[in-house]
Amino acid sequence: MLRDTWMKGTPHKQLRMARLLLDEQFDTPIRIDDLSRQVALSPFYLIRAFRHVYRQTPHQYLVARRIARAKDLLRDSDMSITEICAAVGFESLGSFSSLFRRDAGLSPRAYRLSSRPTATPGYIPLCALRLYGIDEESES
């Protein structure tokens, strides 16, 4: 009941804007204060509403975007791991390596060695999206 009431007031437009800003600016040192100001929500409310709708906090979403881009660069570019770390918005190689390993299961170097360059961008097949009830529009 409380959950339903809360959902009715969810600011979907601002949340979509926040996600768009994260998509566009993931490689910059974006802060939650800046993001919340840009979408006119308090940091606390933005985090709570974002997590409610997208099942992850803005920070988790940002890290996921950065890691996803890092995977592309590890696979398809000759950039060094340090260059990739900076290019996707991480300020510390240590935290990049640690977060990457936690997400991917391999170190950036091992991931690069195991990857096959891709001819086309990776995607989740529609059958899997539907099977798991994932919103097709929200594929990231």
Binding site: Q56, A68, A104, S114, S115, T118, G122, Y123, I124, E139
Partner: peptide
């Protein structure tokens, strides 16, 4: 010795 072919996430779901 397999190679990674696709690694795409959507929220919690990882293809």
């Amino acid at each position: 010795g397999f190679e990674i072919r696709a690694d795409v996430k959507n929220g919690d779901y990882r293809w």
